[in-house]
Each structure stands twice: as C-alpha cells, then as structure tokens.
C-alpha cells in the first residue's frame, strides 16, 4: 500500500499529540498507509508513539534535534522535505495550524509540488474538499503537480482508532544555516484558563457587543461554566475591550466547530460566521428578531440577554443537581 506521511502536531505544553494529529492520521488512511513523522526536541517522541500507532501509524519516523525547536518553521520543513525525498510518499498530510500551513508552503517549494490548505475531507482519488468564503461555498480541488500536500482543518474529521505497528525509525537531522535565521527566543503563555481550549471545546458560549461591558461578560462565563464549555467573543466585543483578543471567533480570530455554539448578543456578520458556521448546533440569543444570526440558528430566543442568560445558567445548574 502507498505510504502517506502525516506530520504529528504536539501539544506545546507537553501533553502529547494534539487531536488534530489523530484526525490527520484518520484522513490519511483514505490515501494509503500512514506513517507518522515526529519532528521535535530530543526526548519527545517516546511519549507519543503509542497514540500514533493506535490511530494507524504503521511507522513512526522520529527526527529529534534541538534546532527544530530553536528556530521558526524552516528546520521542520527541511527535515520533512528530506523524508519526502527518501520515501517518495503518495502524499503528505499536515494539521492545519499556522505552523502546519507554513511547513506545507515551504515543502511545496522544496519538492516542486502544489498544496491545498484547510481541507475538510480527502477522498481516495486525492480529491479534497475546502470550505470557502465564510462557509458559503464548498469546493472540490486537487493537487496537479508533484507530491500532493494537504493541511487538514481541525474538527473536520472524527478520529478513529485503527491499531497499527508504529515501528520506530529514527531519522538523522541536519539543519542548514539558511534555516537557522529566525530564532525563537521566548515562548510566553499569557492566559491560562481552567476552561477547555476554545478551538477544541465541544461547547462554546460567545458574547458580542450586546453584552455591553467587560464586567457583564461574567454572565457569559457563568453560562459557559455551567455547560462545561469555553468562552468566545465577537470582534466588536474584543474591540470594545470587553474580552481579550485570544478569544475572538471569526475570520480574523479562531475557527471553532463545537457540538454546541451559543451566540449571545451577536448580530451574525459574515466575518463572525466564518469562524463558527460549521458548529453542529447553533443557539442564538438576541433582542433583535431580524438579526442575521437567526438565519443559521437551530434554536433562537428573541429577548434581553441580561435576563435570559442568568436564568438559563440557574436552570442548567439546577438540572445538574
């Protein structure tokens, strides 16, 4: 069976592989037999090998060296390009994080290939699906030149276990001077929240301009906590200083695709929809019955968020007893 390289994305906090990697391994199986590639600081691969094997990695290529962590993106792309040259895989699948897309871009130039970003599905014939223009358009596309390179958008494929051998093969790493120009001098975590990570949460409660103040975002947080979800915000809420930018959902913020998205005091501008349109169930709370957010809501309540949200929090908390 054809070999497909899957670049593993690791949790920067040391929590193993990210779910996006398991999704990429699952999607890659449509094209052939996945081999996982771990490019990381020394001592990383040991902790993630089992998970990679469980989700279908027949092989695990381990390329460990301090340089791949000390410099931005370029060294990882070099190592991956070397593997592509050695193994001639049928395709390369990479999780669609900012870094993943940049690695894909560099790999495309190095290998003389085309690349598709943010694909949501890959078919056996190599055709991929992309969702464009804030979810308004669905596109089928394919790579016409070289080794097809895909970046897979998070939350578009459900990870499915498919236990495989996970045979480890270590890869010698040599990084060129050229790739050692952009040095990462510090990694700073500013917001540490006890809530689930926004892009991975299965429930997201977002507040918009209608929430009206930073203090009042408390009612959004309380509803999110009652539901065990993450908190999001519209750009208007962020620009007004109600909530930090890290939590912005939309075109220039995060893309989320949870089981449940609750939009509170958000009108539903196209740029906001761009980040939440593919949520499975959407609920809107808005005092304006004409707000465009209702067009995509499965359930909408027309009324004042200041009364509805705290009441809902109380009812949910009571149900949980």
């Amino acid at each position: 069976m054809a070999e497909v390289l899957v670049l593993a994305e690791l949790d920067p906090a040391g929590g193993g592989v990210r779910k996006t990697t398991l999704e990429a391994l699952t999607a890659a199986r449509a094209l052939g037999e996945p081999s996982a590639v771990v490019i990381a600081a020394p001592g990383t691969a040991g902790g993630v090998k089992d998970a990679l094997a469980e989700y279908g990695a027949a092989k695990v290529y381990v390329a460990e060296a301090p340089e791949v962590d000390e410099y931005l993106v370029a060294p990882k792309a070099e190592v991956l390009a070397q593997l592509v040259a050695d193994k001639s895989p049928a395709a390369v699948v990479i999780p669609s994080s900012p870094e993943g897309k940049e690695i894909a871009a560099r790999l495309a130039i190095k290998t003389g290939s085309g690349f598709l970003t943010d694909v949501t599905e890959i078919a056996a014939d190599g055709t991929a699906m992309q969702v464009a223009f804030a979810g308004q358009t669905i596109v089928h596309s394919k790579v016409a030149t070289g080794t097809p390179i895909y970046t897979l958008r998070g939350n578009s494929v459900t990870p499915e276990p498919a236990p495989a051998a996970g045979t480890e093969e270590s890869v010698a790493v040599s990084v060129s001077e050229q790739a050692k120009q952009a040095r990462v001098v510090d990694r700073v975590v500013e917001q540490k929240s006890s809530r689930p990570e926004l892009t991975e949460a299965s429930i997201v409660v977002s507040g918009g301009r209608g929430v009206a103040s930073a203090e009042n975002f408390k009612i959004i947080e309380e509803l999110a906590d009652a539901l065990g979800g993450a908190v999001g915000a519209s750009r208007a809420a962020v620009d007004s200083g109600f909530y930090p930018h890290t939590f912005q959902v939309g075109q220039t913020g995060k893309t989320v695709s949870p089981q449940l998205y609750v939009a509170v005091g958000i009108s539903g501008a196209i740029q906001h929809r761009a980040g939440m349109q593919t949520s499975k169930t959407i609920v809107a709370i808005n005092k304006d019955p004409e707000a465009p957010i209702f067009e995509l809501a499965d359930f909408g309540v027309v009324g004042d968020l200041n009364t509805i949200v705290p009441q809902a929090t109380e009812l949910i908390t009571a149900r949980k007893g």
Binding site: G114, T127, T137, I138, H140, K142, V143, A144, T145, G146
Partner: peptide, 11 residues
C-alpha cells in the same frame, strides 16, 4: 497551476 479547483457549490 499546481492545484486545480474541480467544482464548487453553494453550501
């Protein structure tokens, strides 16, 4: 082009 759009449809 190194990539091709085969078809598209409104969601």
């Amino acid at each position: 082009a190194t990539t091709q759009v085969l078809d598209f449809a409104g969601r």
